[in-house]
Amino acid sequence: MKRAIGWMAAGTLAVGAVGTAWAHHSFAIFDHTQTYTLKGKVKSFQWTNPHGYIDLDVKDGPPGIDHFTLEMTSINMLQRAGWKSSDVHPGDEVTAIVAPLATGDKGGLLLELRMKDGRTLVPPVPAIDTFKRSP
């Protein structure tokens, strides 16, 4: 199952059409030229505004990364896209596709979350296609 952008698709497109200058949040702190694939165990799932967060203990990823903070969109946008606060739990084994921080620090923007039970959860990131995926 791939739970992703449903009703909010139009809204997401609308945000893109506004242009980042007038969106009420900028995603410019994240690198748009590459992604990391991180395999690990969820340490915490923070269901808050203005962003949700997952803190991940990394078992398999780029060298030197043993922990990573994943930022998500607003939980309002997540709910409109079908997410629930009960979707992710500490201890879940996941694979995360993330756009890393441009600074190189151990954090990034979650673009896709693959669960061990086969679910793939996609946050409704505005203009998500502008984040180039690494092979």
Binding site: I29, Q46, T48, N49, P50, H51, Y53, T69, E71, S74, N76, Q79, R80
Partner: peptide
Amino acid sequence: IEYVCEDNRE
């Protein structure tokens, strides 16, 4: 949906 800006880690 309710919206409380509760914890911005930015």
